[in-house]
Simulated assay, not measured.
Amino acid sequence: MEIKDYSLAMRDLNEVYKISQRIKSPKDESNVQQSYVLLYTHMKNYKKADIAAKRHDFIEDSLLNVEKIALVKTQDTLQVKKSITYQQKTYKSQLKQKDSLIVMLICAVGVLCIAVFVYFVFKRKKRKK
């Protein structure tokens, strides 16, 4: 069944178009432009149908660009997180190495102190004899 009351359809589309602009919904606005194309084509007003088709294409391209930008930002965020995680692991590894070195130095100083103590104890015993 085909609609013959194009003025009513036009008013309805105009109202939906205003609403889509008011709520800032580019996807809905794109759908409205596509509906304008269909309506103008039925009305045999091909010039306006072409203009509406170009608006529809422009909005769709904009939506794709927004999606691409969001994807790039997401990828950048993931790379930054990976980089931070790598830096944190590297830092922790360096801390472990420093901690190991400190423990080894403390043990060496302890052994040295024990050796010096034993040396003086034996030296003292030799003097007493």
Rank of each mutant, 00 (worst) to 15 (best):
S25L: 06
K128G: 03
S83E: 15
Y36S: 04
K126P: 14
Y91E: 13
Y40A: 01
V116W: 00
S30E: 01
K47G: 09
K123Q: 10
Q87R: 12
K48C: 05
K96P: 01
R124L: 07
K129S: 09
K47R: 10
N31K: 07
A52W: 00
Q97M: 04
A52S: 09
Y17D: 04
M104E: 14
T85K: 02
K92Q: 11
K98F: 09
A52Y: 00
Y91A: 15
Y91I: 15
L64M: 14
K96G: 08
E29D: 09
S93I: 07
Y86G: 12
V109G: 07
R127Y: 13
D12K: 14
V116I: 12
E15A: 07
K89R: 11
T77A: 10
I51V: 13
E15F: 05
A108W: 07
S100G: 12
K126W: 11
I59G: 00
A53D: 04
D12T: 10
V118T: 05
Y119I: 01
K89T: 13
R11I: 11
L78V: 11
V72P: 03
R124Q: 11
Q94E: 14
A115G: 07
Q75L: 12
R127N: 15
A49C: 06
L39F: 03
L101V: 12
V16F: 01
T74I: 10
F117R: 03
V80I: 11
I51F: 00
H42R: 14
F117V: 03
S35Q: 13
F122M: 11
H56T: 10
N14A: 06
S93M: 08
D12H: 10
M43K: 06
R55A: 06
V121H: 04
P26F: 04
K123F: 04
S83K: 15
Y46S: 02
K73N: 14
Q75M: 10
R124M: 07
I19K: 02
Y91F: 14
D28P: 00
I114S: 06
T77I: 09
I106Q: 02
A49Q: 01
K89D: 11
S35Y: 00
V32N: 01
V80S: 11
Y40D: 01
K24W: 03
D57P: 02
L38E: 15
E15T: 03
S35K: 06
L39W: 01
E60K: 14
K54D: 08
L13E: 00
Q88S: 10
K73D: 11
M104C: 13
A70W: 02
G110C: 07
C107Q: 04
L95K: 03
D76F: 04
F58L: 14
I69W: 01
I69E: 12
A70Y: 02
K126I: 15
K123L: 10
Q87N: 15
A49Y: 01
K18E: 13
C107R: 05
S93P: 06
K24V: 10
Q79E: 15
G110D: 05
K27D: 13
R22I: 08
V72K: 09
Y86L: 15
K24I: 12
K96V: 05
C107I: 12
F122V: 03
N45F: 03
V121Q: 04
V118E: 08
L39T: 08
V103Y: 04
L105H: 09
V66A: 13
R11F: 11
K98R: 08
D57K: 12
A52E: 00
F120Q: 04
V80A: 14
